[in-house]
Write a protein that binds this DNA or RNA. Sequence first.
RNA 1: UCCGCAGUAGCUCAAUGGCAGAGCAUUCGGCUGUUAACCGAAGGGUUGUAGGUUCGAGUCCUACCUGCGGAGCCA
Length: 437
Amino acid sequence: MGQIYITELSRHVGEEVTLKGWLYNMRSSGKLLFPQLRDGTGIVQCVVAKNSVAPEVWEALKPLGQESSLVVTGSVREDNRAPGGVEIDVRDAQVLQNAHDYPITPKEHGTEFLLDNRHLWLRSKKQHAILKVRHTVVKAVRDFLDHDGFTLCDTPIFTPAACEGTTTLFEVDYFGDEKAYLTQSGQLYNEATAAAFGKVYCFGPTFRAEKSKTRRHLTEFWMVEPEMAYATLDDVMDLAERFLSYIAARVLEDRAEELKALERDTSKLEAIIPPFPRLHYDDAVKMLDEGFEQGALEQKFEWGGDLGAPDETYLSSKFDKPVMVHHYPAAVKAFYMKRDPERDELALGVDVLAPEGYGEVIGGGERATSLEFLQKQIAAHDLPQEAFEWYLDLRRYGSVPHAGFGMGVERCTAWMCGIEHVRETIPFPRMLYRLTP
RNA sequence: UCCGCAGUAGCUCAAUGGCAGAGCAUUCGGCUGUUAACCGAAGGGUUGUAGGUUCGAGUCCUACCUGCGGAGCCA
C-alpha cells in the first residue's frame, strides 16, 4: 500500500493505509496511545492498542515527543469520537526520529517567541490555515488576470532609482561602483510592458525601508500590479471591483475549512460583490468632518491631506464593502498620476479601503500621458531626468491613456482571514526589527 | 523619529517594599477512549543591563537595551 494523504482518508474507510508525517500531539491511557498525526494536508487521530502492535512498536511509540517523524500503517475507521470523523487503528509504525523538547507546546505563547520560532510555528493549525488562504489568494489573482487577457511581465527587483522618489529604499552595493535599490513598485516598468502587450501584470516581492511598525506593514511584501493601455480611472475601478470580488469568492469556495479554523465571519466575505461604493475625495472629506463633529474622530481632517489610518478606518466602517476613494489632491499622490482635466489640483487616483479596518488594500489610478507635464513633474520632485529618459520615451512614442493599480497580497490575505496582523500572512515576515529566521 | 506599554523557570504568567511561585513543557511512575486528557513525583532562576534610594528591591527612582501597540509614511 502506497502513501495516502490525510485529506484523502474519507475515501479509504475500511482500507489499510500508510501515512507519513509528524506527531502533532499524543495522549495516552495505560495500554492505549492516541497519537495525532500531521502530514501537511491535515491531522488525524490514531489509536494504538498495546495488544494489537508488536512489543517493539509499542515501546518505540510510547516515548515520542511532539513533532517526532513517523510512518504509520493501519486501517481507516469512521468514528464520531474523532475530531476529523475518521481514525486510524494502528497495526504497524516506523519511527524516523524521536523529537524532544519541541519549543511550541500546546499552551499559549507570545508573539516574539513564536516569530523567533517561525520556522516551526508554520506547522501550527492556525498558521497552516492562513498560508493556505494566502496560496488561494495568489492563485485567484493569477487565474483572474490570466483569464481576463492580462500577460504576466515581471519587472526587475534591482532598480537604478526610486520609482516614486519620496519613499525610503533599500540600497544595495552593485559591483562596487554603482548603487542599486530594491524595487518598491513595478509601476513604471509596467507602463512599458503595457505599451507592448496591452494588458499586463507583474507579481513579485516589493521592498519598503520605511520605519513603520503597525499591523499593516512589512518591509518585504508581495504586490500584484495590473496595468492596462487605453484605460481610464473608471476602468481601473471596474477592474478592482471585479478583481477583489473574484478573490473573495475563490477563498470562500476553496478554503471553507481553513476559514472555519480561523473562525472567520464569512458573511463579511460574502458581501464583497460589485458594485463597490465610489467616494469622491471631496465627499470623503465631508464624511470625515461629520465624523469629527460626532466625536468619532479625534482630529479634524483638513482638505488637501492624505487619509490617515484612523480616517481610513472611519470611512470604511460606514460601508460593508470595500470603498473606493478617488480624485485625491495631486499633491499627496505620485508624480506620474494624471491630473483631473476639470480640476488641475486633483489626481485621477483611487485607493480601495477594505472594511473592518484593514485599510488600503489597493492603490492605483490613471497615469499622465503628456511628455511636457512629466518633465515638469520630474523637475519639481527633484528627480534626475536622465534616469527617467526611458520612461519619458513611452510618452514620445505612441502615448496613450493608461491606468492600473497595485494590491498588497498580505493585506488582502489578512483581510480574507480576519486576522490582526499581516506578519502571519507570509511564511517568513520581514519587519523593522525582524530579519530572522 | 515621536507617544504609550512591557521585560521573572524552556514557554505563558503570579508574587502589599519582607523566604522566588503556579500551569504547560521535560524526566520518572499510574490509567484500555483520550479530546489543550487526567492523577502522583522530580529537576529547572544572575527577576533585561548598569547605577541609585532603603535595615531590606522582582516591586520605588534614573539611564540604557530589547520587544510590543500606535502615529507619521504606505500596499
